[in-house]
């Protein structure tokens, strides 16, 4: 089940296709020419239309709107919208320890985020895999905002 409500200040067919692939139900309201923003709410995608922009902006400013503002950062929006509690697929994790695979020429500093592409990502019984934890909303926001700047 999707856990994070958020919105993005853009709307493209490619973005809607990605959300649909992720498992969201894209409402017909998102396909109209006046649909400018997209909102991800509990498994559904709805749009904010051009004529509603002022009201929506007021709600965001006053804090009445509980959705996380992703600006026009598509990667951040997709990462937040993908957050769910029933799978590890497409979820972000944070390395709790530094990884240095010398033979592979790979160095991953502590605190870096990685995306999991499998359904279940768990520690093996011998505890040989590096330590990590599921990224929180704030960690994801910080990561993508630092990537953008």
């Amino acid at each position: 089940m999707f856990t994070t409500k958020c919105f993005i200040r853009m709307n493209t067919p490619e973005l809607r296709a990605k959300l649909e692939k992720m498992g969201y139900q894209v409402c017909h309201c998102a396909e109209g020419a006046t649909a400018v923003f997209l909102m991800a709410v509990e498994g559904d995608i709805h749009a904010v239309h051009y004529e509603e922009l002022d009201i929506f902006a007021d709600e965001v400013k006053s804090g009445k709107c509980k959705l996380i503002d992703c600006g026009d950062n598509e990667l951040l929006f997709l990462a937040l919208a993908a957050m769910r509690d029933d799978t590890d697929k497409d979820q972000y994790f944070v390395h709790d320890e530094e990884i240095h695979w010398v033979n592979q020429g790979a160095y991953i500093p502590k605190g870096s985020l990685f995306k999991c592409l499998v359904d279940k990502y768990y520690l093996d019984p011998y505890n040989t895999t590096p330590k990590f934890h599921r990224a929180t909303v704030n960690e994801i926001i910080d990561y993508f905002q630092s990537q953008k700047s």
Binding site: F93, F114, K115, C116, L117, V118
Partner: peptide
């Protein structure tokens, strides 16, 4: 595998 900050199989 690990590629581009993604872990998969």
């Amino acid at each position: 595998y690990y590629v581009n900050n993604m872990i998969g199989n």
